[in-house]
C-alpha cells in the first residue's frame, strides 16, 4: 500500500481538527478537535518513522500521547469548573479578562 495514503489521512484528520477548533463554540468539542490534530500529527510521525526505518518517530508519538493525556486532565478540570460557575461551556462566553 502506498505510504502517502497515511499522510493524506493525517492531513485530512488535521484539517478536520483545525476547522473544528475554529468553528465550534463548545469547549468539549474544541478539546476533542485538538486531540484529533494531535493524533493526526502522531500518525504522520509514525509514517515517517516507518519510511526512515527507525523508531524515533514512534517514540515521539508516545511522548505526544503522554502530554495529551496530561492536557486532558488539566483542560477538562478547567472546563468543568467553568461550566459549574457559568452554566455554559461556550468558549465565546469565557472572555472575562477582556477590558
Amino acid at each position: 500500500m502506498d505510504i502517502s495514503n497515511y499522510l493524506y489521512l493525517s492531513v485530512i484528520l488535521f484539517t478536520i481538527g483545525a476547522t473544528g477548533v475554529l468553528v465550534r463554540r463548545n469547549a468539549i468539542v474544541i478539546f476533542m478537535c485538538i486531540e484529533l490534530m494531535l493524533n493526526a500529527a502522531n500518525l504522520a510521525l509514525v509514517t515517517f518513522s516507518r519510511v526512515a526505518g527507525n523508531l524515533e518517530g514512534q517514540v515521539a508519538s508516545f511522548f505526544t500521547m503522554v502530554v495529551a493525556a496530561c492536557e486532558v486532565v488539566v483542560g477538562l478540570a478547567i472546563i468543568v469548573t467553568i461550566y459549574r460557575s457559568r452554566r455554559s461551556a461556550s468558549v465565546d462566553d469565557a472572555s472575562l479578562l477582556k477590558n
Binding site: V21, L22, V23, I30, V91, D92, A94, S95, K98
Partner: peptide, 12 residues
C-alpha cells in the same frame, strides 16, 4: 478581543 477562536485562527 477575548474570543478564543479568533486567537486560534491567528495561530493557524
Amino acid at each position: 478581543n477575548g474570543f478564543v477562536r479568533s486567537y486560534a485562527l491567528l495561530m493557524l
